[in-house]
């Protein structure tokens, strides 16, 4: 068993009466490509914000690389990279200025920061707009810049919230290759995405959060085995749509996900007037 990169104990977060995340115990081993799934409003973003220090938990404990986040926030932040919600860019800097700035915030010296900035701009195909302000970048370009900023200090853990949203196919391929390379070098990646095919292709382990509670956690194979073992109601199989594999076929992650969160609809619930 690898050492744990991320672990939480009874992690809870409430907003007034609403309990957004409840008693979550996450275990992410070092070097894992970890997918964090859940329906809209399940608590994914709240969890990722707590793990990266953007939101204080109401209760529970977070350990990143063996360090208590509450007690060692600066040490933890030095070792993680984050693409926060909304990308958190400074619009009135150029891409190069922004990356340079982030590099130095993570303690890189001037020369190293400048060198890595140049490499990242080229890698992300952003080098052809040296004088353009970030605010004038397209959404996809901003996304790539935010990703570049998250890796400039070679973090040991990378937190990505919907990293492929709005990124074109070419850039998406480049990014996936970069993330795979990071994994092969021992980094841990914690990823949320609504595109389950991407998670299935990239991640070795996943956790599913539903209505604030962690409802499943493990490797995709373990989850598949669990779901198959639990599907003991064959009379319902015909009523379900979109969540059933053909006999002999493996369940896809989407099917596993739908089974676990119960996100299926009966045929008679369909909208008849849609034609």
């Amino acid at each position: 068993m690898n050492s744990l990169a991320i672990s939480t104990e009874h992690l809870t977060r409430s907003f007034g009466q609403l309990v957004a995340v409840q008693d979550v115990n996450l275990r992410v081993a070092s070097g894992q490509f970890f997918g964090f799934l859940g329906p809209n409003g399940a608590g994914k973003s709240t969890t990722i914000k707590m793990l990266t220090g953007l939101l204080a938990p109401s209760a529970g404990r977070i350990e990143i690389l063996g360090l208590d986040l509450d007690k060692n926030p600066v040490e933890v932040k030095r070792q993680i990279g984050v693409v926060p919600e909304g990308m958190a860019l400074f619009g009135r800097l150029t891409g190069a200025e922004y990356l340079n700035f982030v590099g130095r915030m993570y303690g890189l010296d001037r020369e190293t920061s400048a060198k890595r900035t140049a490499e990242l701009l080229e890698f992300m195909q952003l080098a052809d707009q040296p004088k353009t302000l970030v605010t004038d970048y397209s959404h996809g370009m901003q996304k790539k810049l935010a990703l570049a900023a998250a890796v400039i200090h070679a973090p040991k853990i990378l937190f990505l919230d919907e990293p492929f949203e709005g990124v074109d196919a070419i850039a998406s391929g480049t990014l996936k290759a970069m993330l795979q390379r990071m994994i092969s070098r021992g980094a841990t990646i914690f990823l949320t995405s609504h595109v389950l095919e991407i998670i299935e292709r990239l991640c070795s382990h996943v956790a599913i959060i539903h209505r604030g509670c962690l409802v499943a956690q493990g490797s995709i194979e373990e989850l598949r085995a669990g779901v198959e073992a639990q599907s003991a109601a064959p009379e319902r199989a015909g009523e379900m749509s979109g969540a059933t594999a053909s006999p002999g076929e493996k369940l896809t992650l989407e099917e596993i996900f739908l089974r676990i969160v119960g996100g299926t609809r009966l045929v008679d619930q369909e909208l008849s007037w849609l034609g």
Partner: peptide
């Protein structure tokens, strides 16, 4: 939003902060 230009052939040089 800026239009994408072609990929640059020259190596990018970034001035240090």
């Amino acid at each position: 939003t800026v239009a994408r230009a072609g990929p640059s052939r020259e190596r990018v040089s970034v001035r240090a902060g």
